[in-house]
Computed example of a mutant assay.
Amino acid sequence: VINGQKVWTSGAHYSDYGILLTRTDPSVPKHKGLTMFIVDMKQAGVEVRPIHQASGGREFNEVYFTDVRIPDSDRLGEVGQGWKVAIVTLMNERLAVGGSPGPDWAEIMAYAKEAGTMSDQAFREKLADWYVAAQGYKLTKFRTQTALSRGQTPGPENSIGKIITANHLQDICNSAIEMQDHYGILTDSDRMPADAIFQQSFMWAPGLRIAGGTDEILKNIIAERVLGLPQDVRVDKDVAFDQMKSG
């Protein structure tokens, strides 16, 4: 029997089923005592509330669970081993989010040529940085594709791609909007260059920096699991969940 609430479940208002990570044993540390289930999003007790976003869309949702009954046959993995299932899910999500569509260096270069700002040395330096980062990310994706072709789970290197693409999308769109001067505040796709893709993506990009793990979380993952640096201090690492301070 599930009770609780989660902010930001993408596409929940369209979904017939979801996956749900639950706390099934509060007497062990926070990454233990978790179990994952498949949940019928149409059953009694499940309430989905779409969130109105700055871009005008409603892709994100809050989901409330009130006495929702889930049979054990809908459990994913072993009882108490939900974190292992969640890690596999997150690795694949970060791979997907890292490849999210949006204008890249080629699109803003084309717009800069049209706007007559390619001669701006500061912009050209930014363009070079975006290009180099894009090539590095492309080669990282090749490593991921190789791993997938061998039946392996996407690894922590996908955190690199997500940080690069989300931040660069925001930076590229911000630069394009600045080129448009006071017209940059307009979002009408019929009136703005490139069908206002820079405006729409600028409002969408901050969400990508949260989806699948925030920038700060992913930087810790890269530091610890890719570079092998000492772990961040976690004073509650071995504290039972029900003994943690709250409020």
Results as ranks from 00 to 15, higher is better:
residue 86 A to S: 10
residue 99 G to V: 01
residue 11 G to E: 05
residue 166 A to N: 04
residue 121 Q to R: 13
residue 182 H to A: 05
residue 157 E to R: 15
residue 50 P to I: 01
residue 71 P to H: 07
residue 199 Q to N: 11
residue 141 K to V: 12
residue 167 N to W: 00
residue 227 L to M: 14
residue 36 M to L: 07
residue 81 Q to T: 03
residue 31 H to D: 05
residue 173 C to W: 07
residue 74 D to L: 11
residue 197 I to T: 14
residue 39 V to L: 05
residue 240 A to S: 11
residue 48 V to E: 03
residue 220 N to I: 06
residue 234 R to V: 00
residue 53 Q to D: 13
residue 76 L to G: 03
residue 132 V to L: 11
residue 79 V to G: 00
residue 137 Y to C: 00
residue 103 P to N: 07
residue 231 Q to N: 08
residue 127 L to T: 04
residue 179 M to C: 02
residue 111 Y to M: 13
residue 168 H to W: 02
residue 145 Q to C: 04
residue 41 M to K: 14
residue 106 A to T: 10
residue 118 M to S: 04
residue 96 A to F: 08
residue 8 W to R: 12
residue 104 D to A: 06
residue 226 V to T: 07
residue 136 G to D: 03
residue 86 A to Y: 15
residue 21 L to E: 12
residue 116 G to T: 04
residue 27 S to F: 05
residue 240 A to W: 07
residue 119 S to Y: 08
residue 245 K to A: 08
residue 40 D to K: 15
residue 119 S to P: 01
residue 119 S to C: 04
residue 28 V to R: 14
residue 13 H to I: 06
residue 177 I to S: 01
residue 123 F to R: 06
residue 70 I to M: 08
residue 5 Q to G: 01
residue 206 P to S: 06
residue 113 K to D: 07
residue 235 V to K: 07
residue 142 F to K: 15
residue 45 G to R: 11
residue 16 D to Q: 15
residue 38 I to K: 13
